[in-house]
Design a protein around this nucleic acid. Structure first.
Lengths: 333, 333
DNA sequence: TTGTACGCGTTATCAC
DNA sequence: GTGATAACGCGTACAA
């Protein structure tokens, strides 16, 4: 591995001049510049970002921490982040914490030592202590998918409430009155917020809320299946269900088919997330799209702002979702 | 951000001693050790991996370059890599080249400057020149999903031929004789190899190969749909089809349903990849599982060997696949 | 336009 | 058991 000194020697020139052409600075004789570029080629040299980062106090890496990389929303989001980061000359370093808050701490610590210039994180349960530490250090962070109601860190989130309203109202507009809800509970802020939207939409239309029609589980097909099974066994089952996550909707389909029922003739389904999978369920799932790639790009923009800023910005960007109608909801006569 | 000097000053001790406790070296008085740890806590100090990497010539980062992070095989693979890397104290840096060979070059270059200790890469079209350069530099690399028939870089790959045989033979054993193939062509080595397996299985059973029964496209649902459409319009369409990628199989389903046919009554399908989606197609797709997470872990193991080795190892690890039977293939009477 | 010398934060070597 | 000090590879004043 050659260093800047090697190529200086080879080109018979000083290191500073080499450094100058490396960084495209002006005031360098075209002819020496040529010599240097020649030497760079010949020695197949590439500068050490380590050393560079050390003096510049900047690594040009941004960290991205997620609880589970196999979450199906992840790839699109990641792609948005990578693409936008690249535009600004940044690379992205990933961490998968496997939902382990100990690993989260480690990941954050690892990233601190100026190894990364900023962090985008997407925890399910915010590690409040760590977040506050970062904030105190004025370390650039942006949180994704989680409104910073209590914390004060720049955030880019979804308007889950509006999405819940949108989905539920769509069902109502199609003539449904007995509308179920399958969602995530507990620590899952998104599911909770979507439920809020669901209730709001019902209320707006004067439909009484019925606790028996909602089931909370976790974001995976099995849980969705179990929930739907329960709903189907009700004395008066719903004619339509808003499933707050497409993965759960996929499981719901299973339960419905196991019962010998058909979608949307017997029961209508609307999902949320617009995962790749939703296009391939039978019938194709009507769902809510969240523009994940844009969201990722916006997260990078925001983080870059934070990096440039002197003081933490504490901004909040909220994304609105769109409904994409496919085949899983029918008009009730 | 505090440095090792800050905490040396605070603890009234020299930097070397601080460095010693930081690295858990022996021969340090417990009482001074305590003082130092105290100072570290108070100043919330964490060492700079940049500086550390500079002197150690080691970043503890491994690079992972993929053509498209939204490829549905990716998350599991990535998870295997991340998890195994973590075990050995490595972090993982991702690059998505978007199939752009210019970006590939950039990514490789970026990683060289000792920023990463090694690279795992998964190109569709191998960038032979760059690969050779890396090899000349003795830079640790392992290639994934691609047999190094011509190149001589450590590789971890799938036995696609055997997988193709396995899938096709399964169809044959179920009584099928007219067996179609939908696969990827051109630059897609995997699809080509699986086709080889398909032909071998036919040959072994004395079934003549019929060119009209194979369609080559690209790995996405639309292409699978188009291929299946063509097969269905044949005068004598196949009774079963081996689709070499689950994403294409998903598209095949569409074409079949559009034609008003049913799976597996009218036509049987076997896929390959065992993506999450395959469990949620109707009927559930019988397919080939490739142990993607293991593969990722093995890739890290191999890379770590390369890093430790003086000379390039040029090893080759081949993974065998397993058939997972679900509902999309029927026994022909 | 080009070269010299110093500092970035850390570890390793060698004295003490 | 502890402390100076020289690297590591680079960017940047400042001097020439």
């Amino acid at each position: 591995m050659s260093t800047i000194r090697d190529i200086a020697r080879k080109a018979q020139i000083s290191v500073s001049t080499v450094s100058r052409v490396l960084n495209n600075k002006p005031d360098v004789n075209p002819i020496t510049k040529n010599k240097i570029e020649q030497a760079i080629k010949e020695l197949n040299y590439s500068p050490s970002n380590l050393a560079r980062g050390l003096v510049l106090k900047k690594s040009n890496i941004i960290g991205f921490i997620v609880p589970d990389i196999t979450n199906p929303s992840f790839p699109e989001l990641a792609r948005g982040i990578i693409i936008r980061a690249r535009v600004y000359g940044y690379s992205v370093m990933f961490f998968d914490t496997d939902h382990d808050s100990q690993v989260e701490k480690e990941a954050i610590n690892l990233m601190q030592g100026k190894q990364v210039d900023g962090i985008i994180l997407s925890f399910d349960e915010a590690n409040r202590d760590e977040l506050e530490k970062l904030k105190k250090k004025q370390f650039p962070v942006v949180q994704i998918y989680r409104k910073s109601s209590e914390s004060t860190i720049s955030t880019i989130a979804l308007d889950n409430i509006s999405a819940g309203v949108m989905a539920t109202r769509f069902l109502i507009d199609k003539g449904h009155r007995k509308i179920g809800l399958i969602t995530t509970g507990k620590h899952a802020q998104s599911g909770y917020e979507r439920q809020k939207g669901y209730r709001k939409a019902l209320e707006d239309s004067g439909i009484p809320f019925d606790k028996k029609l909602v089931c909370t589980g976790t974001n995976n097909p099995d849980s969705g299946r179990a929930c739907m099974k329960g709903l189907l066994e009700l004395e008066y089952p719903p004619t339509a269900v808003f499933v707050s996550h497409d993965m759960m909707a996929a499981g719901s389909y299973d339960a419905i088919y196991e019962k010998g029922l058909s979608i949307p003739d017997d029961i209508s389904i609307i999902g949320h997330d617009n995962l790749v999978i939703s296009r391939h369920l039978r019938p194709k799932l009507t769902t809510i799209d969240t523009h994940k790639s844009n969201l990722g790009q916006e997260a990078v923009n925001l983080l870059l702002e934070e990096i440039r800023a002197i003081e933490p910005l504490n901004k909040e960007v909220i994304f609105q979702a769109d409904l994409v109608e496919r085949e899983s909801v029918r008009q009730l006569v």
